[in-house]
């Protein structure tokens, strides 16, 4: 009934390189919004805007971490969780969730973690991890979009 649905499955194949970094269905939905698969002028800037946003957020997280500002960390975590979830970037989303939770002085399971030092440590770990994941994904995305275009040329 709808051409998009067929396209979706194709795109999922193309995206298999992302592994558990990306939720194929959600990201596929983003790719579907491109008016042309050759140009990708919706998804491509969006994805790279996201990375920019992520980098800025990491900076602010670092600042908040230095000031032991748990509340600030929590809201920054929530903020980036929102956009990463929207794009289906699961690994980043999960780390942001960790930051948000410990910012609220909660463990990931939702039980209390009253020791602020532990919270800050956990957040620092999560921040380190999310930075690495973001960089990895950034590279994968660069390759993905380049390949999409490369394919175009060879045709």
């Amino acid at each position: 009934m709808h051409p998009t649905e067929d396209r979706d499955s194709q795109e999922v194949d193309e995206m298999s390189d992302f592994g558990d970094h990306v939720d194929d269905a959600i990201f596929g939905q983003i790719l579907e919004m491109d008016e042309s698969e050759e140009e990708r002028d919706f998804s491509e800037p969006l994805v790279f805007n996201f990375f920019q946003q992520a980098l800025e957020t990491f900076e602010r997280m670092k600042e908040a971490l230095d000031n032991s500002d748990l509340e600030g960390l929590s809201s920054l975590g929530h903020f980036l969780k929102g956009s990463s979830a929207t794009l289906g970037f699961n690994k980043i989303r999960d780390s942001c969730q960790v930051i948000q939770q410990y910012g609220h002085k909660l463990t990931v399971d939702g039980t209390d973690e009253l020791d602020e030092k532990v919270c800050l440590e956990k957040i620092a770990d999560a921040l380190k991890k999310v930075k690495v994941d973001t960089e990895t994904l950034n590279k994968k995305m660069e390759i993905f979009f380049k390949r999409e275009k490369g394919d175009e040329k060879e045709e």
Partner: peptide
Amino acid sequence: EDNVINQKVILGLLRS
């Protein structure tokens, strides 16, 4: 929506 990324996506969805 406060997050620009999410803004763009939801606008994109609505547009589609």
